[in-house]
């Protein structure tokens, strides 16, 4: 009798339609271990950056990403010292109001340029060395943001935008400046061409502003990506640009999983800086040119080994920059059922 009921239940389930697709909360992010040699100083840095994604209903999403890094460096006595650093990259609530507008509130990555929002995670960035232009503006904001992307009157062009307002926050984990600004961009899916511009106005201290333009192109016929950004600031931090190219060796036998990367960048310090300001700005207080070359090997789409060499040319501070390490992007569901609402 019970076997019959089990059989009937199986038949009943077979006749069921597919369940509606409900998003589930997930925990993702990346871990990495990198050894860096900067002008002869060796550093080892294991890091983990978990990202929690919690969808609520059909229109809401909670995103929270943190990072924890333990940096070991050899001191003059020959022993290693560790320095633990942690932070919250973003912790925001998103509401997808309609196809044109998404409202975000909380701590978020400042929508300025393309590097911070899109190429920041270590499992995504082609070179682990960050472009110098990333230090020119406030990377994080605390406040509200409107953003969205939609076809610009034709399917051949997509338009995207982001505007934000941030308050001042002095907490060392989530420090932000009082500022406002935004970014607009155009993406042409056919030729896979993207370009745009950004603006940021700081509303405190000497109220500097910054402007940037960006460009991305991925030709359809070759596995090449070209990216470039130019950033100019009105304050003490100068201006700079980088051009980065990645080439997937997918057409070469035995090297299909290898990606070659090259980047050239130049930074021009602001004029008339005092000696004290130059000391405070560190690397941003000197005119600098830098070239980097690297190789990435993808064991799987989520496991990658990376190595790179760079040469930095700065007045009295020429240096070799070596980096080698691995990244792993993890992803796991936190519930078997759908959205909690």
């Amino acid at each position: 009798m019970y076997c019959s009921l089990l059989l009937l239940f199986s038949v009943y389930l077979w006749g069921q339609d597919d369940a509606e697709l409900k998003p589930v909360p997930i925990l993702t992010g990346s871990t990495g271990y990198f050894t860096r040699v900067t002008a002869g100083t060796v550093q080892d840095a294991p890091t983990v950056s978990p990202l929690l994604l919690v969808p609520l209903g059909d229109k809401w999403l909670i995103e929270a990403k943190g990072s924890l890094t333990d940096t070991f460096a050899k001191n003059r006595a020959g022993t290693y010292n560790g320095l633990v650093s942690y932070g919250a990259a973003y912790a925001q609530v998103d509401y997808i109001a309609n196809p044109y507008v998404t409202v975000s509130a909380g701590r978020f990555i400042t929508p300025f340029g393309i590097y911070g929002e899109r190429f920041g995670p270590n499992w995504i960035r082609a070179l682990q060395v960050t472009p110098m232009t990333s230090g020119l503006t406030s990377g994080g904001s605390l406040g509200g943001m409107l953003r969205g992307g939609f076809p610009a009157g034709t399917e051949k062009v997509n338009f995207d935008y982001a505007v934000y307002f941030s308050t001042n926050n002095t907490n060392h984990i989530v420090a932000t400046d009082r500022s406002t600004g935004g970014r607009i961009g155009f993406f042409l899916p056919g030729p896979r061409l993207e370009f745009g511009a950004s603006f940021q106005q700081t509303l405190q201290l000497d109220r500097p502003h910054a402007a940037a333009v960006h460009f991305v192109w991925q030709p359809n016929r070759v596995p090449l990506s070209l990216r470039s950004e130019y950033v100019r600031t009105s304050g003490l931090k100068g201006s700079g640009y980088y051009i980065e190219a990645t080439y997937q060796l997918s057409q070469v036998p035995y090297l299909r999983r290898v990606e070659a990367v090259g980047r050239g960048q130049q930074f021009l310090k602001a004029d008339n800086l005092s000696a004290a300001t130059i000391r405070r700005l560190g690397a941003l207080g000197r005119d600098t040119k830098q070239g980097d070359f690297g190789l990435n090997y993808y064991f799987r789409p989520d496991v990658r080994a990376s190595a790179s060499y760079g040469r930095q040319f700065a007045l009295g501070k020429n240096a070799n920059l070596w980096t080698i390490g691995m990244t792993y992007r993890f992803l796991m569901p936190l519930a078997s059922r759908g959205s909690v609402l």
Binding site: I26, I96, R147
Partner: peptide, 22 residues
């Protein structure tokens, strides 16, 4: 990825990469 995980990821990418609704 499993469909329900993919639904979460694509919502995240819609916000982060400002991809269109369609």
């Amino acid at each position: 990825f499993p469909p329900r995980m993919m639904a979460t990821i694509i919502r995240h990418m819609r916000v982060r990469a400002t991809i269109t609704d369609e």
